[in-house]
Simulated scan of single mutants.
Amino acid sequence: MTPLTCRVFGHDYQFTAEGTTMRWSCVRECGAGGSKEYESAAQAQRYARAFDRKDTDDLGRRAPLMGLFPLRMARAMRKRVEGRRQA
């Protein structure tokens, strides 16, 4: 049976490469996972590294949603005003 956390938040996959095979499994040990073969070990390693990144790894480098909200609102208003001018 799938743990409650996996059912609510989704699986937390960890990706690894073994030769030309990339494998993934849920770190909560619920049994979810799989594998995929690539043409080279370098490709498998590259994809495993790319997929294994977490959003929290670069938390300080990305602006929070609320920090971007005024910019998004200004852009939306500008588009709306430009749309009225063209009509």
Score class of each variant (00 low, 15 high):
T21G: 00
A50I: 05
G31N: 11
A42M: 07
Y13T: 06
A32R: 03
F69T: 13
R80D: 14
Q45H: 10
M77N: 13
P64I: 09
R80H: 13
W24I: 04
M66Q: 09
Q45S: 07
T5M: 12
D58G: 02
Y13D: 06
T5W: 01
A44Y: 02
A48M: 05
F15S: 02
S40E: 06
E18S: 13
L65N: 08
R85V: 10
R46C: 02
G19I: 04
R85T: 11
G33H: 06
L71N: 08
C26E: 07
G34M: 05
Q45W: 01
W24D: 01
Y47M: 11
L65C: 09
F51V: 00
R84I: 15
P3D: 15
L71V: 06
P70A: 14
R49T: 12
G34E: 03
L68D: 05
Y47W: 14
R84Y: 12
P3N: 15
R62A: 02
R75I: 10
V8K: 15
L4F: 10
T21L: 10
S40R: 11
A74S: 09
Q86T: 15
L4Q: 12
G34A: 08
F69K: 13
G33D: 03
D58C: 05
V8H: 08
P3H: 15
A42L: 11
R23G: 00
C30M: 07
H11I: 02
G67S: 09
A63D: 01
T5D: 12
A42C: 03
R53G: 01
P3Y: 10
T2E: 08
R62D: 01
F15K: 03
P70N: 13
T5P: 01
F69E: 10
G10Y: 05
R53V: 05
R75Y: 09
R49N: 08
A44E: 02
C30G: 06
D52Y: 04
A87E: 13
R61N: 07
Q45E: 13
Y47P: 00
S25G: 14
E29R: 11
R53D: 00
R61I: 00
